[in-house]
Design a protein around this nucleic acid. Structure first.
Lengths: 168, 168
DNA sequence: ATTGATTATTTCAACGTTGAGATAAAAGCA
DNA sequence: TGCTTTTATCTCAACGTTGAAATAATCAAT
C-alpha cells in the first residue's frame, strides 16, 4: 500500500537521486504535516458549525479542563496555544464580546490579566465537548482504537524527543 | 514518561469524568496537532532564513520533484498544497516577481495556466534541498532513524484511512 | 450551431496571526 | 528611595489565507 507521501518520495528519488539517502525524514515529517493539515481542517469545520473560530474553541476547552476557578492568564494561553500575544488579545476581545469569557485584573500582579470562563462559556463548552470527541472518534474509526493506542505511544516518544513535556 | 497531551487528558479526566471513556482519540489527534504545529514552525523558520514564505517553499519543491518540464497547473498546486485558489494566485504572483517561476498559458486549454520553474528557481531549490533534509534529520536525530521508520509505517496506515492516497 | 453547464483562474474584501513597539507594573539592586 | 531590568499585556500595521463573485474558456447536448 502507498500513500501521497510515498509518491512524493518516489518523485524525489527519480529527479534527485543524489538525495535518496537523505530522504528518510520525509517519511515521518511529510506525513505529520499532511495529517496536521487534514485534522486542522476537520476541527475548524466542526468549530465553525458552532459559530466558533478554532482559536476560540481552544481557549474554551483549555479553560474548562483547567478546572475551578476556570481562569488562566493571557500568558498561559499564549504558551498553551503556541501563538503570539497579539493573537491572544484578539481572541479574548472577540470572546468577551460574545460573553464567553471575561477579563479580570489580577489583584496581586496588576500587569497580569486573568481570563475567566463565564457561565455562558461553560454551557457552550459543555454542550460541544461530547460531540467534539465523537467527531474525533469518527475520524479514527477506520484506523481503530487499538491502532490508535499503538500510534499514540510512538507519538508520545516523538513529542518527548522534541521536549514537549509540559502544557505550561 | 508523559508529555503535554498526557497532562491534558489528565485534566479532562479530573474535570469531566463523564468524558473519560471518550477521550481516547485525543491521544492521537492531540499529539498530531501539536507535532504539526511544532514542525510547521521549524520549517517556516528554515524557509524564512532563505527569504521564502512557506508556501513558496512548497511550490518550488513541488515543481522540482515533478521532473521535466518542471511545470504544473495552478490547480495542481491547489490540490497538492491543500489551499484555496486565491492563495495559489497570490503565491505565484510573488514568486513571479522574484523570478522563481513564470506563468505560461496552456496552448491546448487556454483556461489553464502552467507554472514553470525558471533557471533561477531551479538553482534556489537545488541550493536549499540538501540543507532542508539535513534540518529534518536533525529534528528526528533523538528519535532515531529506526523509530522513524516504524512510526512512518503507522502514519501511512492512518493517511490511507483518511483516503490521502494521491498527490493529485 | 446554440445554449447551458462545467472547469480554471483571478479578483477582492474580510479575517486571524505575526512581530515589533508601546505601556505599565513588578522585581532586583545599589 | 531611586534606577534599571524584566515581565505581562495591548496596539497596530503588514502579511497570507479564505471564500465568494467575476471572468473566460471548454465541454455536453440537442
Amino acid at each position: 500500500m502507498s500513500d501521497a507521501v510515498d509518491a512524493i518520495i518516489g518523485q524525489w528519488e527519480a529527479e534527485r537521486p543524489d538525495l535518496t539517502d537523505a530522504l528518510w525524514p520525509v517519511q515521518v515529517i511529510g506525513r505529520l504535516q499532511r495529517l496536521g493539515r487534514i485534522l486542522e481542517k476537520e476541527i475548524k469545520t466542526f468549530a465553525a458549525e458552532r459559530g466558533l473560530e478554532m482559536g476560540e474553541f481552544d481557549v474554551l476547552t483549555t479553560l474548562q479542563r483547567s478546572g475551578p476557578p476556570y481562569e488562566l492568564t493571557a500568558g498561559a494561553f499564549r504558551k498553551a496555544a503556541m501563538v503570539t500575544s497579539g493573537a491572544i488579545t484578539n481572541r479574548i476581545d472577540r470572546m468577551e464580546a460574545k460573553g464567553l469569557v471575561e477579563r479580570v485584573r489580577d489583584t496581586d500582579d496588576r500587569r497580569a490579566v486573568k481570563i475567566r470562563l463565564t457561565e455562558r462559556g461553560h454551557e457552550v463548552t459543555s454542550a460541544f465537548m461530547k460531540d467534539h470527541l465523537a467527531n474525533e472518534a469518527r475520524l479514527l474509526a477506520d484506523f481503530g482504537r487499538e491502532g490508535s493506542e499503538e500510534l499514540a505511544a510512538q507519538l508520545r516518544r516523538l513529542l518527548e524527543a522534541f521536549g514537549d513535556t509540559s502544557i505550561k
